[in-house]
Design a binder for these strands. Structure first.
Ligand code: MN
Ligand code: MN
Ligand code: ZN
Ligand code: ZN
Lengths: 162, 162
DNA sequence: TATAAATTGAGAATAGTTCTCAATATTGTC
DNA sequence: GACAATATTGAGAACTATTCTCAATTTATA
């Protein structure tokens, strides 16, 4: 995987082109947001992002954040996932393969996984229903390896709703 | 599949037992909500439900609805799904097998499907990550058979993100 | 420098949901 | 039935995440 610095400059170039194509500007605020977002690989929420903007005299308003994220989404740089029903998380997609998530309901840990088999079967189901899939989300909720131990969750639990 | 009337009385019995076990009461409001919910099989949103309550002098407040739905959820009678990111839908689960959803982004149509193969592979992935799954959601978004035709969506579109 | 177009931030507005609390209903007991 | 203890309800306030409004500012271009 490329270094964050290189990723960042590629992402900026991508964003710049996207914006240019729509007669939009790569303003300092948008550039700053991009900088922050592509300086880490974790999932982030809007609140976090807003916090991270508030350092060094500089700041970006919530309004601008709410306006910018959908732009980055359309540019294919990030995507929104709602692993916790209450607030949306965003994640860098520009340098990542598609993946799905497991979320530990005890500690909140997020595990990413790719599974070609599942994806293939999804396509089959779509074909069967004559449905053209443009995107999908698969979320598994439960107990991570660590919480399973500390909470003594039985493996049987898993089979109940599997 | 059993008739709605029989389902309804079973659901009421189930809810009554659940409530009794927690020293809660099956009030007229709760009973009325159950009546409305188990009189149809479609997915419903809170707004709809609230509307349906407002007939015949009788009414149930939003506050009560918001308090009652989580109870029914815990009782295993309904579940919440958020197919449209903006507002939650609920659906009767008491007489239905587990299933997942396809949602048409053009017309909003919801298609339900069951796929044992996918579920099995999910379990495998969990095993691999030593993760105890308690629930999952799989959502496919795209174009239904009808909208595909009227909008002349190419089948190739589907393969892009599949 | 002048002009037009795009952008920003503050704060108002919206909407979905939860909370508060006084009034009401239910349950079990005498 | 009367009573005390508990649970429930609805109205409206409160909260929170998100969107909208608009005047001031920035940027691009000529
Ligand atoms: Mn991820
Ligand atoms: Mn369904
Ligand atoms: Zn955990
Ligand atoms: Zn459709």
């Amino acid at each position: 995987m490329k270094s964050l610095l290189i990723q960042k400059s590629h992402a900026r170039e991508c964003f710049r082109n996207f914006l240019r194509g729509k007669n939009l500007l790569l303003t300092t605020e948008r550039s700053r947001l991009l900088d922050i977002i592509f300086s880490q690989r974790r999932h982030f929420c809007i609140y976090d992002l807003h916090q991270m903007c508030q350092v060094n005299q500089q700041k970006v308003s919530l309004a601008t954040i709410y306006r910018t994220l959908p732009l980055m989404e359309k540019a294919g740089l990030i995507r929104a996932v709602n692993l916790k029903a209450d607030n949306w998380l965003y994640e860098n997609t520009y340098f990542k393969h598609h993946h799905d998530h497991m979320v530990c309901v005890a500690c909140g840990k997020i595990i990413e996984f790719e599974n070609v088999g599942i994806e293939k079967m999804q396509s089959k189901v779509c074909k069967k229903h004559d449905f053209i899939m443009t995107e999908h989300t698969l979320e598994l909720r439960g107990y991570c390896s660590h919480c399973k131990k500390t909470r003594k969750i039985s493996a049987l639990l898993g089979s109940k709703t599997a």
